[in-house]
Write a protein that binds this DNA or RNA. Structure first.
Lengths: 300, 300
DNA sequence: CATGATTTATGAATTTATTTCATCAATAAA
DNA sequence: TTTATTGATGAAATAAATTCATAAATCATG
């Protein structure tokens, strides 16, 4: 029977590149690993490793076991860490994932009161997912997903938690600041600064420029919101961000913002979570708190 | 350290309702289970079971372990069965899931030549998913998903494999059979027979009746296509099915079909699969075969 | 409430599995 | 060829799981 230990060993050999190293990393003798591998190979009558010179290479069978290990081991570890927390009388860790850059600023405002209200609960916020936020939610890597596009799935429930308007941001002295709202053609001669993500996830493109068949003069990407805004204030380009974010960060009022199109681009942030199976009820508590502190930036 | 065996034991006690029964089902002594549970409880310093009378009830901690077990154990079992097949020199099992009832008939036509071409590969077709087809694909319960709605996810690739037209089916003597195509209002006085699935998954409603703000006189559901068609032939109602399916099943030509709306409702079936990690390459082979035998029922 | 049937818990013994130790064989570099 | 380095192997030691026998608790029943 394949055991958790076997998975750990196969994974360690694979990542370390050799049995000797893997043995050290697992605090076991090299012999132990060799015996363990031999046991798997004899019980299933399938080689797991093939020797090429003195490198060990996974066989097809080995690769399927490694796949199992990579899917399954993190889940063991997470459950164990939950158990440890329970033993200490603490509540769980709420792992929140985010799919949109400026979500983070909003999240901070909910996380702070949540941590205060539930001192025995921890929050962990993750921004990067190897396989996308939904997968992470799904594969139990996170418990809550903050996202602007609630992809309907049977097992996942979304709750709208925040409405906001996405506006074009420019320096107060920028010519476009004199307009009452922005039209797609207005951006043809501008430098647009965005976060470094796929274009398909940027609303300025998908909902504004592309439908109007317009393009910008230049497109730069910047990671951090603060730097982005400094660039914009310095007249080096324009960007599109949630209105509330600008109102909050632009203390010296160096920035102006205008709606994208006459109606403006209106967005909703959703919190997605798996249906059922929330040991501490933390997910529900967080959503409740997010809703109670609900503030709309959407002029409603 | 929580082990696969611990998970099996917790799951067995939970499903059997008692340790004694669980012990029998696992071919172990009751004492073994008791000791195993005690070990988990002492290493994590958390109770897993609470005794209510002489029933065992899972604690919060127990429920998280059970959750882990239910997510993880099937994956162990599947990997093991793959290993057994590899040992026999066989190729894997291709587990295909379906999300639309009439897909099955189409699938049969691809599966037959596939099994002939790859005699060492097995195919398993599943129709019911506890958490939806995508979840099943994702959670490694199936390898291939045949679906009419390709929900875009980063980890899943869709290949269109079949175009068809969804038509309204009626008995040849039915008054609607005299029309050249069906309009939504035509159905207001009809009994509509469908498969027993959510309305949101039925195109007659979503793409035809609801947009036109029309309703049918009555709505009946029937599981099997054959019975459905007999009901229709007997003049007991009308139904909506792929055109090719009718052409194939209606040998005595008791049935007539007409397009839903002048353009008709045109659908595409997609085969979805996880990116990467297909130990035998069976997924690719199947898709290739599905495409090579590609027949369009869409008049193109 | 006493009795018997049934269920879980426990300590000691037993069996099974894992790990180490010492050593060999194979590989790659010097 | 010599010399590290790496994996493989059998025997011994250690650790873990399992059983056995039995106790304690629960529940139904006369």
């Amino acid at each position: 029977m394949i055991d958790r230990q076997h998975l750990k060993i196969i994974k360690a050999i694979y990542t370390c590149g050799s049995m000797t190293e893997a043995a050290a990393s697992l605090h076991l003798s090299q012999s132990a690993l060799s015996h363990a591998m031999k046991k798997v190979e004899t019980t299933y009558k399938v080689p797991v490793w093939r020797k090429e010179g003195r490198k060990l290479v996974l066989t097809q069978a080995g690769r399927s076991i490694l796949g199992l290990a990579e899917r399954v081991l993190p889940q063991f570890e997470h459950t164990e860490s939950m158990l440890h927390r329970m033993a200490q009388g603490k509540q769980g860790i709420l792992r929140i994932g985010m799919e949109c850059h400026p979500c983070f600023e909003w999240l901070l405002k909910v996380v702070a009161p949540f941590l205060k209200a539930y001192p025995d609960a921890d929050v962990d916020v993750r921004r990067a997912f190897s396989f996308g936020g939904l997968q992470a939610l799904h594969g139990f890597d996170i418990d809550l997903l903050l996202t602007p596009d609630p992809l309907r799935l049977d097992t996942i429930t979304y709750t709208p938690v925040f409405n906001y308007e996405q506006v074009l941001v420019m320096s107060t002295s920028h010519p476009l600041a004199s307009k009452s709202f922005i039209q797609p053609v207005d951006l043809c001669s501008e430098t647009l600064i965005t976060y470094p993500v796929e274009l398909s996830r940027l609303d300025v493109f998908c909902q504004f420029l592309t439908p109007a068949n317009c393009a910008v003069k230049a497109h730069k990407t910047i990671e951090t919101t603060e730097i982005m805004l400094q660039m914009v204030a310095a007249g080096r380009g324009v960007t599109a961000l949630p209105k509330w974010l600008i109102q909050e960060l632009d203390e010296q009022s160096e920035l102006a913002f205008r709606s994208l199109g006459e109606p403006g681009i209106h967005k909703t942030l959703y919190l997605g979570h798996r249906k059922g199976g929330d040991p501490f009820g933390l997910v529900d508590k967080f959503i409740e708190m997010a809703l109670s502190g609900l503030h709309n930036d959407d002029g409603e």
